[in-house]
Design a protein around this nucleic acid. Structure first.
Lengths: 354, 354
DNA sequence: CTGAAAGCGCTAACAC
DNA sequence: GTGTTAGCGCTTTCAG
């Protein structure tokens, strides 16, 4: 069934016009007599001709493709972003090339691949670029915007949200609720988001004269956060509040505490997340969290990228959007102490330590 | 900073070799003297040269790109699939072009776009193709596999799971638990998965002499399923069990019932979903569901597509994988009646009807 | 092993 | 308006 590919030349022959007439007929804004275009279209339909956009890209030197690179779609925050951005670019007549960062090293290979592909722009979702890598794409004149990661290089735009303030709010708020053993479940070690959220959190704690009770790493993943929670509550005194570097981990913590430790959230432990993914609002978890303006971030990032693509001289921007505390019911309402005695907590601890 | 694009010709000049020598040096399996390749590579590095893969595609007539089209990433089932498939193709040296089906019509435009792009294969995630559309891509000799949707055309491969049996199991199992008012929350109307799951479900019910208590449409989406649940429980007698065409909707139903109607799952209402997405196993919902072998489906689909790309004569296959009931705790254990009286149910109903 | 030459399928001047 | 011509940057015979 594989038909020999039919070219504009074939169509031209059938339609009795020149090859360039065919080309023109398929360009929306070209001067062609309506009559010619009709003839061409008829012939094209008969032969099943479609313009080869690779050839087109080669000569126009524009691929009308943008690359999106991400490291995982487990967090709905990023799959939402991806969908949002994709639809936007698609609407603008761009194609989207999707890359996943290899879990091992080999990210340079991906960059190389992207450059060879002649994409007109790159959108990085939560991808940490070192300055060599950043310089590499910038030197090639490929517009690039990084979402949710700070990059140590001026030539690249970034859009993110105010992680530090968010962390600060979380720390301060938990302290103001009367919590005194406040722990942290960290995201990906050394990711800028984690660093900033944590730093803000520690400051917020410090403002109330507190220090962080304990830290465990959850890598921004549900399963890892379950383990982190177990470690956190394996020794006494256990935390009475938790700040988790994203919602997915906060949800994991809630689930683990409720179902493995028999603890209540927020009665025994208050929990705050970060992102405000859709499921944070679901009544099953009703998670207090810091809302990143995901929709706005996506549109800002895509528009920024488009601007840089369309006007070569657009300067890279560094956009930091505010986060909004979403008070829900994973944090207790006011100062009071756990309804469970220390004895009970200890029992819960041993129960779960089978 | 935008450097004039450097071509193999530039490299050749600097290295003092012919342009074709440069080309050869960048082809992994070409006969070039090691010495020449060294010279070329040095020159290339100096100039920052990267082969233009568009030009390469044009002449080799192979884009090494496959298109993935999906309609939404809200369901983690599909974002998981997407990630899985992407990583696989990336590993095989293929690029991935991502398309979202426009919510309005306009899907033919996407198909046209895909054909023009000269992709070597198409993976459709939950995309309903009519036979005209299917024929269109098949006629162009583009291998295509459709995941989780039946297509009415022989030329295209499909991989899905046994929706009918899954539905049958759900219907029969709920009946065997003693439920008598079993309702259905439907997915996307007229999607093959919904049709098949529903048909199986009705048969499973019929086997026990039951009919479906009520049906509402949830479009496979969380928010829509919340509304569907409200409608289902707005009138008495309300259902005592629910089969939802996917997990996302089942979770929505659980949340709505528990938090808006004050009903218990599974004590008052048993609920079964479909897919077994990761969060179905989270203890917060512990959803009884029908597991689709998502990992296997993804690998089967990708391998099938690869086979068709590599050997032109590979016949399209139609693969149906078995589903597995995952018994968790959103269904009650054995036959007994709701602990709530009809009076209480009525109260709950009025309470929620503010 | 290497260079010269011939395109891949298309767009974009340029004359007519 | 339309055809003619010259490439886009690369791979691939084909001689040497």
């Amino acid at each position: 069934m594989k038909r020999k590919s039919v070219t504009s030349r074939d169509v031209a022959k059938l339609a009795g016009v020149s090859q360039s007439a065919v080309s023109r007929s398929f360009s929306p804004d070209a001067k062609v007599a309506e009559k010619t275009r009709k003839k061409v279209m008829a012939a094209a339909r008969e032969l099943g001709y479609r313009p080869n956009s690779i050839a087109r890209s080669l000569i126009t030197r524009s691929s009308r493709t943008i690359a999106v690179v991400t490291y995982s779609l487990e967090n709905p925050f990023y799959s939402f972003m991806l969908e949002k951005a994709s639809r936007y670019f698609q609407q603008q007549g761009y194609h989207l090339q999707l890359f996943f960062a290899p879990s091992d090293n080999g990210f340079d290979t991906v960059i190389d691949d992207i450059i060879r592909s002649q994409v007109e722009g790159v959108l990085m979702l939560a991808i940490t670029l070192d300055s060599t890598q950043a310089k590499e794409v910038a030197d090639f004149g490929i517009p690039c915007v990084v979402i949710n990661r700070t990059v140590n290089f001026d030539g690249i735009s970034q859009v993110g949200s105010d992680n530090h303030s968010g962390g600060y709010w979380a720390g301060h708020y938990l302290a103001s609720l009367g919590h005194r053993r406040i722990a942290y479940i960290a995201g990906l070690p050394n990711s800028s988001t984690d660093l900033q959220r944590k730093a803000g959190f520690l400051e917020g704690l410090a403002k109330d004269g507190l220090t962080c009770h304990a830290v465990e790493i959850g890598n921004y993943r549900y399963a890892d956060a379950c383990h982190a929670t177990r470690r956190l509550f394996a020794s006494l005194p256990s935390p009475d509040a938790l700040f988790c570097a994203n919602d997915l981990m906060a949800i994991a913590a809630i689930d683990t505490l409720r179902h493995e430790f028999g603890l209540s959230v927020p009665e025994d432990v208050s929990i705050i997340g970060f992102d405000d993914v859709p499921m944070a609002a679901w009544p099953s978890h009703s998670l207090t969290t810091l809302k990143q303006p995901v929709e706005f971030m996506a549109s800002k990032a895509t528009e920024l990228l488009m601007a840089q693509i369309n006007q070569v001289d657009t300067a890279p921007e560094n956009i930091m959007l505010p986060v909004t505390p979403m008070l829900r019911s994973s944090t207790r309402r006011s100062i009071h102490h756990s309804k469970k005695s220390l004895k009970e907590l200890s029992d819960a601890h041993h129960r779960s330590a089978r």
